[in-house]
Amino acid sequence: MLSKHFSEHNFVSGHTACAGCGQALAARLVVDAAGKNTIATNATGCLEVFSTKAPQSSWNIPWIHSLFENSAAVGSGVESALRYLGKIDKVRVISQGGDGGTSDIGLQALSGMLERGHDVLYVCYDNEAYMNTGIQRSSLTPFSANTTTSPPGKVSTGNPKLKKPLVEICSAHHIPYSASASVGYPQDLQRKVKKALSIRGPKFLQIHCPCPLGWRYEPGLTLEIARLAVGSGLYPLIEYEYGKLTKVFKIPKPKPVEEYLKLQGRFRHIVNSQEEVAKIQKIADKNIDYYQLK
């Protein structure tokens, strides 16, 4: 099935995302920064579902969704076709997916795309759980977060694992550019998209996208929460070029993680425990030290 329409933005309103959806905002920032000469592939997930219910579509650039785990592989095929057609210098390819579609089920296809050196920017919209199926844990769900498959209980304090270091995993493919961004800092985000697309070869960008429904906070707080994640050191904004850390988003006065945690229902079970909050503060401190964020 296909759909067609016209607007100024490359991703337009009228879709069915929840109020305050960080991913919808991030997607618009990405494709607007990318420009009209872009073809996007999309993994199955919230973004695909809320933007393209037949016969409508929010995409004002050529866009294709196939399956959950193959956005990077479809992107590889699109890029190869453009190369064959002699259009690879004129048309940019962006492959997109959520955190589950990228870091779990789609990781093999992503690794293959990066390793083969396709001229594709892969964008991972990281809302830190499988939101489309109703808030299940992914390998990018943060430590202690309450999801429906990592619930707190008598012997559990929520998700027992740390986030998978996906920016580093992609960077380890020795690609020209691997970075993280946040929907809370739109200018930085769009600069990174433009920078990535100015480079030929495989690129990776992971964007932190708060989810009011899944994280359980008031929809008006999306940007504030996104900034607190960065400002506390829990979501470092970093840039790698050919495997080397070249730039970080500085946070001279890091905020205590508690300020970030207390706004979200997914951390409600630990915010009153000094011991549990301290564990998360340790993660932030480690990031601040490791990436020299101060």
Binding site: E69, V74, S76, G77, A81, A109, G112
Partner: peptide, 21 residues
């Protein structure tokens, strides 16, 4: 363009993407 993919799943996905172009 001969695309040496990492699985049959991606082989089928790559030709899907090409065909869509």
């Amino acid at each position: 363009e001969f695309v040496n993919v990492e699985s049959e799943h991606s082989a089928a996905s790559a030709v899907l993407g090409a065909e869509a172009c």
